[in-house]
Simulated scan of single mutants.
Amino acid sequence: MKVLVSGIVDFSTIDYPKKCSAVIFLYDCNMKCPYCHNLKHILEHKKEMTVEELFNNIDFFFADAIVISGGEPTLQKDAIIEIARYAKEKGFPVKIDTNGTNPEVIEELVKNKLIDYVAVDVKCKFDKYREFTKCEEDGEEIKKKILKIINLCKNNNVFVECRTTYVPKIMNEEDIEEIAKTVKDCDLYAIQQFEPKDAYDEEFRKIMPPKEEELIKLGKIAKKYINNVIIRTVNGVFEI
Rank of each mutant, 00 (worst) to 15 (best):
T165D: 12
P168M: 10
E53M: 04
V237N: 10
A84K: 02
I149W: 03
N172S: 11
L215C: 13
P209C: 11
Y86H: 13
L26W: 01
I226W: 05
V67T: 02
E44A: 00
A119T: 04
A190D: 01
N112R: 15
N38A: 05
K220G: 00
S6C: 04
E174K: 12
E161H: 02
T13E: 06
V94A: 00
K40R: 14
I226E: 03
I66Q: 05
I216W: 14
V118Y: 01
N57P: 05
N57H: 09
P93T: 05
C153Y: 02
K143H: 09
P168A: 13
F11L: 08
F126V: 07
E177N: 07
V5M: 07
T13C: 12
V9T: 06
C36I: 08
D201R: 12
I8S: 01
P209R: 00
I231R: 04
T13M: 10
K143S: 06
K154I: 05
K90L: 14
V122M: 00
E239R: 15
E195H: 14
F11D: 03
A119I: 08
E178H: 09
A65R: 02
A190S: 14
R130I: 10
E136D: 15
R130Y: 06
K206L: 07
C135N: 15
I115D: 02
K134G: 11
N227E: 15
K125F: 09
A222G: 04
I170V: 15
N235W: 05
V23R: 06
E173N: 11
N156V: 10
F92C: 03
C162F: 01
N56M: 10
C33V: 13
T233N: 13
E104W: 09
K143Y: 07
V120N: 02
V9N: 01
V160F: 10
K95L: 04
K128P: 04
G7V: 03
Y35P: 08
S12V: 07
T98Q: 02
I106L: 13
E107L: 10
Y27H: 15
G71D: 09
K95Q: 01
E48R: 11
Y189P: 00
K90D: 09
T13F: 11
S12T: 03
K128H: 11
L188S: 01
I230L: 10
V67F: 00
S21K: 00
D15P: 03
L215K: 03
K2Y: 15
T74L: 01
T182G: 09
V9G: 01
D187L: 04
I83M: 10
I216S: 10
D64E: 15
I14Y: 05
L54P: 00
L109R: 02
S69E: 09
D116M: 02
L152P: 12
L39W: 04
A22D: 00
P34K: 09
K46W: 08
C186I: 08
K113Y: 08
E131A: 15
E107D: 11
K143A: 12
E82S: 15
G139T: 13
R205V: 03
I80D: 02
E48S: 15
I230W: 06
D175Y: 04
S12Q: 03
N155G: 13
E212I: 15
E48I: 11
S6E: 03
N56K: 14
V9K: 04
V229G: 06
P209S: 10
L215P: 08
I106D: 02
T101Q: 08
